Amino acid sequence: MDGRAVERCHPHRDGELDASAISSITRAPVPRRARLLRHAITVNTIPPSLVATPLARRSEQSGEVPPLEVISQMIPIARPGTPEDIAAACSFLRSDGASYITGQELNVNGGSWM
């Protein structure tokens, strides 16, 4: 048995992040991770970042968050992420090329930090 687990964390409905959820499995105690690793199962996390999704646009339109274009000016790459950006990172972490990567957080965030 082998496999990959990629954990993508999302904000709660009220927009708050549960810090423990961000890396709950990724940074599990060593004995727990060892059981997964014996079966060649790697576990990594992609923390939340600004991604232009329908939910983000609705939050913008309702005034819950500033316009994405304004927030994008604070990101070094000067644009919000796309679902395809996140999917590409997930695809890599699930590939054989990532078979030696485990217990990591891959920040797909255009160079910004949340």
Rank of each mutant, 00 (worst) to 15 (best):
T45I: 05
G110E: 01
R33K: 05
G63P: 10
P83Y: 06
V51H: 01
G111E: 11
E7S: 11
A52S: 08
L68S: 08
G15P: 10
P54A: 03
E60Q: 09
E16W: 13
I22Q: 13
T53Y: 02
S91I: 05
T45W: 00
E16Q: 15
Q61D: 09
A87P: 02
N109E: 14
D14F: 12
R32G: 10
P29R: 09
A87C: 10
R32V: 14
R94C: 06
A5K: 03
A87S: 13
Q73H: 15
G3E: 07
G103Y: 02
T42F: 00
Y100I: 10
I75W: 06
S20H: 06
S23M: 03
T102D: 01
E16K: 14
R57C: 02
R32S: 10
G110Q: 00
D14M: 13
A52T: 06
L37N: 02
V6W: 02
P31W: 04
A78M: 12
G15H: 07
S95A: 05
A28L: 04
S23C: 07
P31Q: 05
D2W: 11
H12E: 14
A56G: 05
H39V: 08
R33A: 07
A78E: 12
S20T: 13
W113Q: 15
P67L: 04
R79W: 07
G3A: 08
R32A: 12
E7A: 11
A56H: 01
P80F: 06
M74S: 15
V51F: 04
A19E: 13
A88T: 12
S49T: 15
S95Q: 05
P66R: 12
R35E: 08
R33V: 09
L55V: 09
I46C: 11
T45H: 01
S59N: 04
Q61Y: 01
G63R: 04
R13K: 12
I101F: 01
P48G: 12
E105Q: 14
A87Q: 12
P48L: 05
Q73N: 15
R32F: 09
V30S: 12
H39K: 11
A87G: 12
R79K: 11
A34W: 02
C9G: 11
